[in-house]
């Protein structure tokens, strides 16, 4: 069952990615990307990362992509769009590079990453049993990674100020 679902959402993710890259209309690209993100959220659920799945949808699909959609519509790029896909050799080069990247990354990830450690699944399951899905992430986040966590808040503050400054016509 979950294997089947995995294949379904994986193909949706790849299809969404392909559509995002190939569609000429920015809105279409965006919707395909939302599809990919949604599929990724589903894959996260299948991989046992419920909390990540939820914030994937909330943050990416619900906030970031809405922002993109907003900008596209604000700049009216969706209606009278000009095709922006580069021609001929670039497409070949692009997808050849993509294939090469994928192949090399696959080699890296599968030969090095997967065999290093095992049993994380069980560890996570135990943590979720004890602390539930959110607590299992929250505890290490606020205990071991407190400083990076606080730093991200600084980063967000900086980003807010930067965005406001950039987007205002007159400061």
């Amino acid at each position: 069952m979950s294997d089947l679902l995995w294949w379904v959402f994986a193909s949706l993710a790849i299809g969404g990615g392909l559509g995002m890259v190939t569609r000429k209309n920015p809105i279409a690209s965006l919707l395909f990307l939302v599809l990919t993100f949604f599929s990724l959220a589903a894959l996260y659920v299948l991989l046992g990362a419920h909390f990540i799945a939820a914030i994937q949808v909330i943050v990416y699909a619900g906030a970031i992509m809405v922002l993109f959609l907003f900008v596209i519509m604000l700049l009216n790029l969706g209606h009278d769009y000009r095709p922006d896909v580069r021609g001929g050799a670039w497409i070949v080069a692009g997808f050849a590079t993509a294939g090469l990247t994928g192949w090399l990354l696959t080699r890296v990830l599968t030969t090095e990453g997967a065999v290093v450690a095992q049993g994380g699944e069980l560890e996570i399951a135990a943590a979720v049993r004890e602390w539930n899905a959110v607590g299992a992430i929250a505890l290490p986040l606020f205990r071991d990674y407190l400083v990076p966590f606080e730093l991200t808040s600084v980063l967000l503050l900086v980003a807010i100020i930067g965005a406001v400054l950039l987007a205002k016509r007159r400061v």
Binding site: A93, G94, T97, L100, T101, L104, L105, R107, V108
Partner: peptide, 15 residues
């Protein structure tokens, strides 16, 4: 593209 290619070449050498 150049950046990606460079990264790929490095990656290829490492692998």
């Amino acid at each position: 593209f150049a950046v990606v290619l460079g990264a790929l070449i490095l990656l290829g050498f490492m692998l």
